[in-house]
């Protein structure tokens, strides 16, 4: 059934596309462009990544529509599945909540970029419009033996050297990534005793670092503990969150809570007093 459908669609793709495909193109194409624009203009990297993933899935659909079945699947599995997940990992590492300012810092950069982009796009479209693209052969013949088989035949014959070289490239990239991220430990790890001695010698923070959170309601790791005078102490939050600037300051909230508590208790105490008076 699916083979028949495929044959049907490919035969139709000779000079013009079916109405269904046109419908699909206009709907999904619009979504893809919006996704691309969101990728560029979203403040948070996570949102950008999700929009890009959406655009990529739509592209996968277009691949399928163009008879590139293998590439369509690979697009979903490799790109959307693996590469975008890799992106998300890094985004999480860098800080998922950190929002970028979209304010331009380099003078004239935005206008130049838009001008160049506009000019480039117009020229590209002009080039496409100018090209002689009257012939439109369709993939019916090429895909007759099956798309994957056709690709395999080409990869292992005509493009075998390129294929081998991409293998070498991947290995190199893997090794490179390891080299770049790996940190060699150049000295012995300090023992607990040495750390304690070092702390005493530095005479800055003799006791262990205080625990985060204040009161039972706010013991989250990203909330600084309050000092006796009510000011938050950043020492209580771990270094990674401090570096990211992801400390939640709840000191005002806590004081507000305290005030509300006192008021409530006063109200209750007042009521109890009145009840007592009434009882008398």
């Amino acid at each position: 059934m699916s083979a028949q459908l495929a044959a049907h669609s490919t035969s139709l793709a000779a000079y013009s596309t079916s109405t269904g495909e046109a419908f699909q193109f206009w709907i999904l194409g619009t979504v893809a462009v919006i996704g691309a624009l969101c990728t560029v203009f979203m403040k948070k990297a996570v949102h950008s990544a999700l929009c890009l993933a959406g655009t990529m899935i739509i592209l996968a659909v277009f691949y399928l529509a163009n008879g590139a079945y293998f590439l369509g699947i690979v697009q979903v599995v490799v790109y959307t599945g693996a590469i975008m997940m890799l992106f998300l990992f890094v985004v999480m590492l860098v800080g998922v909540t950190a929002a970028d300012s979209l304010k331009e810092t380099i003078k004239g950069q935005r206008w130049l970029a838009l001008l160049c982009g506009l000019g480039f796009g117009i020229l590209l479209c002009a080039g496409i419009g100018n090209a002689s693209l009257s012939e439109f052969n369709g993939l019916a013949q090429a895909n007759s033996g099956g798309n994957v088989e056709g690709l395999a035949a080409l990869i292992f014959t005509k493009y075998v050297f390129a294929f081998e070289i991409t293998g070498a490239l991947l290995i190199t990239a893997a090794v490179g990534a390891m080299v770049l991220t790996h940190r060699e430990r150049t000295e012995r790890a300090k023992t607990q005793r040495e750390l304690a001695e070092e702390r005493v010698r530095a005479n800055k923070q003799l006791p262990p670092l205080p625990a985060p959170g204040v009161y039972a309601r706010h013991n989250a790791v990203d909330i600084a503990g309050l000092l006796p005078d009510g000011t938050p102490s950043e020492l209580t939050v771990i270094k990674t969150l401090r570096d990211r600037g992801q400390i939640r300051d709840v000191s005002n909230e806590a004081i507000k809570d305290l005030k509300a508590l006192e008021q409530r208790s006063e109200e209750r105490l007042g009521r109890e007093e009145r009840e007592e008076e009434a009882a008398k």
Binding site: T17, A32, V33, I128, L133
Partner: peptide
């Protein structure tokens, strides 16, 4: 629909990416 539209879409996406 002419399949050339796919090319226009590609150009548009490329330009958006570059910008």
């Amino acid at each position: 629909m002419n399949p050339v539209n796919y090319l226009y879409l590609a150009a548009l996406l490329f330009t958006i990416g570059a910008t």
